[in-house]
Computed example of a mutant assay.
Amino acid sequence: MTEQPGSPDDTPENTKGRPSLAEAALFGCCPRCDARTLFDGPVKFAERCRACGLDFTRFNVGDGPAGFLTLIIGALITGLAIWLDLSVRPPFWVHIVIWVPVTVAAVLAGLRVSKALLLIAEYRNKAGEAGRDE
Rank of each mutant, 00 (worst) to 15 (best):
D63E: 15
D63I: 13
G64Q: 12
A66R: 12
A66L: 15
A66M: 13
A66I: 14
G67I: 11
F68L: 10
F68D: 04
L69I: 10
L69P: 06
T70Y: 05
T70N: 08
L71F: 05
L71E: 07
I72D: 08
I72A: 12
G74M: 14
G74K: 13
A75M: 15
L76W: 05
I77E: 06
I77F: 06
I77K: 06
T78R: 01
G79P: 04
G79T: 02
G79C: 07
G79W: 02
G79K: 09
A81L: 11
A81T: 04
A81P: 07
I82G: 00
W83K: 11
W83C: 11
W83F: 08
W83R: 11
W83P: 01
L84E: 03
D85W: 04
D85V: 04
D85Y: 00
L86M: 02
S87Y: 05
S87D: 01
S87M: 08
V88N: 01
P90T: 04
F92Y: 10
F92W: 14
V94P: 10
I96P: 04
I96M: 11
V97F: 05
V97P: 06
V97K: 06
V97Q: 04
I98G: 01
I98E: 00
I98D: 01
I98N: 00
V100C: 08
V100K: 02
V102Q: 02
V102F: 01
V102R: 03
T103C: 02
V104F: 00
V104T: 09
V104D: 00
V104I: 12
A105E: 02
A105C: 07
V107M: 07
L108D: 01
L108M: 05
L108R: 12
L111G: 14
V113M: 14
S114T: 15
K115I: 09
K115Q: 11
A116F: 09
A116S: 14
A116W: 03
A116V: 11
L117C: 12
L117M: 10
L118C: 11
L118S: 13
